Computed example of a mutant assay.
Amino acid sequence: MKILHVNVAEPVTDMLARAGAVMEALDAGDAPSPYYGIGFDSFPEMLSVFSAERWRLLNTLSANGPSSLSELAARLGREESAVKQDLDLLVDWNVVEPQVDGRLAVPWDEVELHLPLAQRAA
């Protein structure tokens, strides 16, 4: 299963620990498990990429499989130009992938969101 991990305000220590685990696996001659992740500094920044309309687009594309821009716009009931803008951004973030035949696809089986709550000061 290919999971896209979306992390918001992930501590640097967590990223370093994940990188360290990969290095240890490689040193031991093991193949590390693939990790696909994107990170955002804040919840508003994450929402600038994963807006409600883009989330609907992502779910529609995932449910219907590889689709052309016109097919996707028709399914969503949106103008092609608006859908293209959203797709361009999602492609830039590696959330959607263009296929050789020009259609677009979601390469992920699941998107996992990690959004920590603020910790109370001691």
Rank of each mutant, 00 (worst) to 15 (best):
V8K: 09
N94H: 13
V8D: 03
W55N: 13
V22T: 14
W55G: 12
L104E: 00
L89F: 01
Y35K: 11
N59I: 03
H5L: 11
H114L: 12
L26T: 11
R78V: 02
M46L: 11
L47K: 15
L16F: 12
M1Y: 04
L4I: 01
L87Q: 07
E97A: 14
D92P: 00
E110Y: 12
V106L: 10
Y36D: 10
G20A: 08
A31C: 07
N64I: 00
M46G: 01
D41M: 09
P66G: 03
S51G: 11
L47Y: 03
L113G: 03
M15V: 10
S62G: 14
D30F: 04
A28N: 15
E24C: 02
V6I: 15
E10K: 10
V83M: 07
D14F: 11
A73C: 06
W93K: 13
L61A: 03
G65N: 04
E53F: 05
Q85I: 00
A118V: 10
L76I: 09
E80K: 14
V100D: 15
V83E: 09
V91T: 11
D41H: 09
A25L: 02
A25Q: 15
S62P: 00
R54K: 13
Y35F: 13
M23P: 00
L87S: 08
L61W: 03
S42M: 01
S81L: 10
V100Q: 14
G29L: 07
M46I: 01
L113K: 07
L58Y: 14
D41S: 13
L69G: 05
G29S: 06
E53N: 12
E24S: 12
E10D: 06
V12S: 10
S67M: 15
A121D: 12
G102M: 06
D101Q: 08
L115R: 09
F40L: 06
L57C: 06
S68P: 07
P98W: 05
D92N: 13
A63K: 12
R56I: 00
V96Y: 00
E97Y: 10
A21C: 06
V12N: 10
M1K: 05
A19G: 05
L72C: 05
W55H: 04
W55F: 07
S42Y: 04
L113F: 15
M23E: 13
V8L: 04
P44H: 08
L26D: 04
P34S: 10
R120A: 15
R54Y: 07
L58K: 00
A74W: 01
L113A: 12
M23G: 01
R103C: 11
V22S: 08
E71M: 08
A82Y: 03
L104K: 01
G29N: 07
A21M: 14
P98G: 01
D86R: 06
E110Q: 13
T13R: 11
V100K: 14
P98S: 02
K84W: 03
A25H: 06
A105G: 08
D88M: 08
I38N: 00
D27A: 15
V95Y: 04
V91S: 01
E110P: 01
A105S: 15
R56W: 03
L26Y: 06
N7E: 14
L115I: 15
T60I: 04
L58W: 11
A31P: 00
S51Y: 00
D41Y: 05
L57K: 11
P107L: 00
L115G: 06
R75M: 12
G65Y: 08
A28C: 07
L69N: 02
A31V: 14
V96S: 05
G29F: 02
V49E: 02
L87T: 02
M15H: 10
L104S: 09
M1Q: 04
Q99S: 10
